[in-house]
Structures are given as structure tokens and as C-alpha cells.
Design a protein around this nucleic acid. Structure first.
Lengths: 343, 343
DNA sequence: CTGAAAGCGCTTACAG
DNA sequence: CTGAAAGCGCTTACAG
């Protein structure tokens, strides 16, 4: 690649016999510059194929107009939808997005966050990785005066802006739906309990039992079943119990619910008549399986929109101290074939 | 958010009674600085919670260590996989990724590209939108001395680095598979022909007919059927023909193949016995449908890896002129239930 | 090994 | 409305 000398405002100024100050003003559409010269400057800039150096501009202005996003995996529907939702809003405001994936690795997450601090991003949006629960690196973000917005998977103890789902309520509704459908032995596939979202989903599960006065059966609660493989593994264990469950709430994700369905199909167990299945997240595939999977829609794109709007609202806000705002989005239970026993 | 004065190298220098030059050198691990002072500087930087301002550093060095990516949609499996693949490699080299989505809109694509030029990214990776075939904005990238790598959906006429699939070969194999499976009337759902990938897939389709000496039936070729909805619509038309097809190659995507499957299911047409279906892209859901869908795996994550590696290889290369390199990745036909007529 | 100085490309308070 | 000048935070060729 050959090095190209780029046009700067000095080149334009020189060509027109004026100063860079005026050029800068004109290109920023300041009204304290003569209309005619402004036009001339813009025209010349265009002719010389001038592109502003955002780096220099931002350095001078002490901002970066950039938002950093740290998520566990880009290529997971929920997260890519959140990103798409953020991008929709930020793009219009002239902000760029820098994306990092932590790969569910706490150390990489720390590295990502540090890189973003170095980049002097104006805001960091994060969904924490499952592994690790030391949040010094996030405190560090705040200490640098960078806006921090947590989304979905949040470190609860950190007082920051948060955009979350009402996981308790959603799980409560899902399990209630199963109970009302006549399922008697409802198992839970739970996720890593250091993540509050998974704790809350368990809480919703337990709450439903209490509300309907149904006793909780401890042996039907399976730890750490939060991938398709682990979900399948947990299901095999559950179904080989002397008293197997007649429904499974895969609270961690639809991936794990898919593992359940696979095992059920492989064992010739009929869904939903012999086994009800409910997932979480409304991944696109959950509609396509046979039977389709009952799940919970988190409005992921909308969550992304909300994150972005929250950021812009906050920067418009000149209070010296940001009160920790938490926006909780109510998810929606989507009832599909995998739990429709009657009808 | 309160404004925080960040620690700079001057703060460190002042505290230690030395100059910023030395601090800079130490923090860049230069070996022309006393080992002991270096240690002291690093320790002090740590104590003062110093973070380098990458903006300033990059401005000075005339590089940004940033790669811009423009894709039609972030939340589409293929593209998010490509991004994940790029990120895997660039992250390790200390490069950041700025992501923009064009929403399949040519004007937005131009805006995205211009924003990235303004950001002085070192490289732009693009998969062009379907709409529009004027590539002045991409020429402009080259004119600014920015590396341009096209991936998957490429503007053929532009001589740049490209990472693509062998679409002709893949389609040829898919259609050959259908012919050998005994399907006699094989329809084609084609995509916008201004995108070369879709032209090539059609070419592969035609090539297979020629190889097997089967006449092409024009009425079985459906234009612009490249979404689930358009695929379904095209299928309805095809199946209501006096001589309907007994197989459909949804060359545009698995989404379109899914549309075919939905219509077939709704009409009570048995897949694969009465109708064979082949999709494209190996989206995760194609494995889950009933029957599962035969498709073509493009190794999307690997394509992303390749893009990144190509970039790093090129910047290591000091030739004044970059020869347009094209890396073609051979996709793989994945045979599944939707075309397994015998067995 | 260390410092003084210039400069990356822009913006903006100050003067006129 | 326009200019001269300083400065954002860093890096680096030059001198010693």
C-alpha cells in the first residue's frame, strides 16, 4: 500500500490564501464565517478530497464520539441483536462503535475494558462474562470518568446505569404456565449462579412453586446446564431418575432447551405430551424446531436501543453525579408447541 | 457524569522530576532508558492509574490501529461469524474493530465508509449491500491510501484484496447432488444479479445442468427470491405450475430455503420424497428443521480469520503497489434430510 | 541514557 | 468576520 499524504485544513487554507482557523470554522459550519468564503472552502475541500481527521478533532475536543461494547460473543443472536440495536441509534448521532468480545473469559474481558479506556471511549457498554466476579476493572471505568452501562448480565453491586430484563417475573410466568398446563414435576436447568440473571431466573422458578403451593423437588434442579451440550447432559440425568420430570425449564437459553429437545427426541419421549420444554431468549431457531419451543422474548434489539438512548440522555444531563438508573424491560412469554399439551 | 482529569505523561514526569520524553520511552518499553527509572516510571504510572491516550498516540504516529468493518447486518449469522473471526485475530495484535451496518442500503453504506475514512482507520473490510452498484466510495478508500478488503459480497470490477467463496463450484456440487439423487425438475431461487455471488451461484446451477446434459427449464428459475418471505412466495408460484419442480435450490440463503420448507409443509408436500430442498450458508437453524436442510457451509469464522491475516500480511509487505490478491475458500456441501430421498 | 523541541491535525478563546 | 496562537497528549529525531 503506498503512503498517501492526506489533505489537511492547512492545504485548503494555503490554496485559498486564508488561515486554517477559518477553514476549520467553515467545515464545522460555524456561522461566524463569511457565507461566500464558507462555500468556497467547502467546495475546495471537496475538490481536494479532504476528510477530517477525527482523531485530531477528538483529541482537541477531549471526547472520542466512540462507544465501546464488550460482550461475551458477537456471534450469538441475543448479543448481536443488542449491538444492532445500539448501532441503530448511535449511528444517527455520529457515534462509532468499537466491539470487543470477551469469549466468556474474565481476563480477556479485563483486557478489552482496558483497551477501551485507552481509546478514550465516551462510554462502555458491557455484558459481563460468566467466569469471574471481581469487578475492579469496571470500577476503573467509572474512576476514569467514562460512562458505564451494564446490559443484561450485570454486576449488581456496582452502581451504574443498567438495562436489564425482569428475569424473576419472566421465569415466574414461564413456570406458572407449566404448572397451569398440568405439569407436576418441573425441572430447572440453571446457569452459573455468580451471574445475577441466572440467580433471578431460579428465584422466579421458586416463586412460582410457592405461589401455587407446589413443593420444590431438589433433585430436579440441575446446576450449570447452560449450553446445548450441558443441557443435553442434564436432561439425560434427569430422565434417568426413578421419578423423572414431566417438564423442563431451560432457564439459561434456548440452546440449552434445544439440548433437552434433542435428548427427548432421541429417547422417543413425546414433547409436549410426555415432556414439556420451555427455553429462554427467543432465539430465531426456537420457532423452527418440531415442536417449536416455548420461550421468553427479551426484546434484544430494543434493549440495545434503550442502552443507546440512555447514554445520550445522560450526556445531556449536567448533574455532577449520575444516579444509578436501572431500566428493566419486561420480557414476554411466547407459548409454542413444546408446552401445549391440550390443544 | 463528573469530568475527570486524566493522568498524562506530564503528571508522571512532574512527580518524578524528569521529562515526558523519558516517561513516554519507558511506557513504550524503549531500551534507551535506564532500567531503574523505567521501573519507577511504570510503578508510578500504575499508582496514578495512568492510561495512555491512544488517540494522541495514534495521531502522532499517523496510524490508528483500527479496522473498520461494514456489513449489511450485524445480526445475521453469517456476518456476525465473519466479524467474530476477524476479531479473534485482530484483538491479539492490539487492533480495534469499528463496526457499521449498512442495512442493505447503498446510501448508508457510503456514509459508513466515509465515517471510517474520517476515523483514519488502517483498513476497511466490506461486504457490499445488495442495493446499488456504484463503487466510487470504495475507490475513494483506496485513494486515501487505506487498505480495502472485500469479503463474500464483492464488487468484482474493483481491484482490491478479496476473500470469497467459490460460489460456482459450491452451487455446481449442490445441483449435481440433486441430479444424482434422481430429481428431474430442479428449480432455482436466485438473488439480485447485481451481486456477483448470486450470479456465480446461478452459473454453478447452469453448469451442473450442462455437465449432466439436462435441459434448463426457464420457468423454474425465480428471480429475487432471497429472503424467507420471497422464497416462500416463489415456492408458491413454482408449486402451482402445471409441471411443478421436484426440487428447489434456494441459492440465496437458508432463510429462503426455510421459506420453501414452510410452504411445502403447509401444502402437505413431503420433503424430500416429493420435493428436495437445498439452501446456502449453513445457518445454525438449518440443522434443526424437520427435515434438516441440505446446505453449503462457507466457513464464515474462518473467512473472518483469513481477512484479518491477509491484512497483517499486507502491512508487513513494503511493496509500493499491492497486487490484488483473491483468496477463494472452498465451501462444503452438507447433505441432510431435505435431499436424502433414498435411505 | 536524558532533555528540549517540534509536530501529528485539529479547535477555540482572545483580539481586533 | 478573520487571524495568530496555544494546546489536546503523545512520539521521536536531534543533540549532548
Amino acid at each position: 500500500m503506498k503512503k498517501v499524504k492526506r489533505t489537511t485544513i492547512y492545504d485548503i487554507a494555503e490554496k485559498l490564501g486564508i488561515t486554517a482557523s477559518s477553514v476549520s470554522r467553515a467545515l464545522n459550519n460555524s456561522n461566524q464565517v463569511n457565507e461566500k468564503t464558507k462555500e468556497l472552502i467547502i467546495k475546495t475541500a471537496d475538490e481536494l478530497n479532504y476528510k477530517r481527521n477525527t482523531l485530531a478533532s477528538n483529541l482537541r475536543k477531549g471526547q472520542s464520539k466512540t462507544i465501546g461494547v464488550v460482550i461475551p460473543r458477537i456471534n450469538q443472536n441475543f448479543f448481536s441483536n443488542v449491538i444492532a440495536g445500539i448501532e441503530e441509534v448511535t449511528y444517527q448521532k455520529g457515534y462509532s462503535l468499537i466491539i470487543c468480545q470477551s469469549d466468556e473469559d474474565h481476563d480477556k474481558e479485563i483486557q478489552c475494558v482496558n483497551t477501551l479506556i485507552n481509546q478514550h471511549v465516551d462510554c462502555i457498554v458491557i455484558s459481563v462474562s460468566a467466569d469471574g466476579n471481581d469487578y475492579q476493572h469496571l470500577q476503573n471505568v467509572l474512576d476514569h470518568g467514562i460512562q458505564l452501562i451494564q446490559v443484561d448480565r450485570v454486576a449488581e453491586e456496582l452502581e451504574t446505569l443498567k438495562v436489564i430484563n425482569d428475569n424473576v417475573q419472566a421465569s415466574y410466568e414461564a413456570v406458572s404456565h407449566l404448572i397451569e398446563g398440568g405439569y407436576k414435576r418441573i425441572a430447572l436447568l440453571e446457569g452459573p449462579q455468580n451471574l445475577s440473571i441466572f440467580k433471578q431466573r431460579k428465584e422466579g422458578y421458586l416463586k412460582a412453586f410457592k405461589a401455587y403451593n407446589v413443593p420444590v423437588i431438589e433433585e430436579l434442579i440441575v446446576e450449570n446446564a447452560w449450553t446445548k451440550e450441558l443441557g443435553a447432559e442434564g436432561t439425560r440425568k434427569l430422565l434417568s431418575l426413578p421419578h423423572p420430570p414431566d417438564a423442563i425449564f431451560a432457564s439459561t437459553s434456548d440452546f440449552s432447551a434445544l439440548g433437552v429437545l434433542d435428548v427427548a427426541n432421541a429417547m422417543g419421549i413425546k414433547v409436549p405430551s410426555q415432556l414439556g420444554i420451555c427455553g429462554y431468549a427467543n432465539e430465531s431457531f426456537s420457532e423452527i424446531t418440531s415442536p417449536s419451543i416455548t420461550t421468553i422474548d427479551q426484546f434484544s434489539v430494543y434493549m440495545g436501543n434503550t442502552v443507546a438512548n440512555l447514554f445520550f440522555q445522560e450526556i445531556g444531563n449536567n448533574d455532577t453525579i449520575t444516579k444509578p438508573k436501572i431500566i428493566s424491560i419486561k420480557p414476554e412469554l411466547i407459548i409454542r408447541g413444546s408446552t401445549k399439551r391440550n390443544g
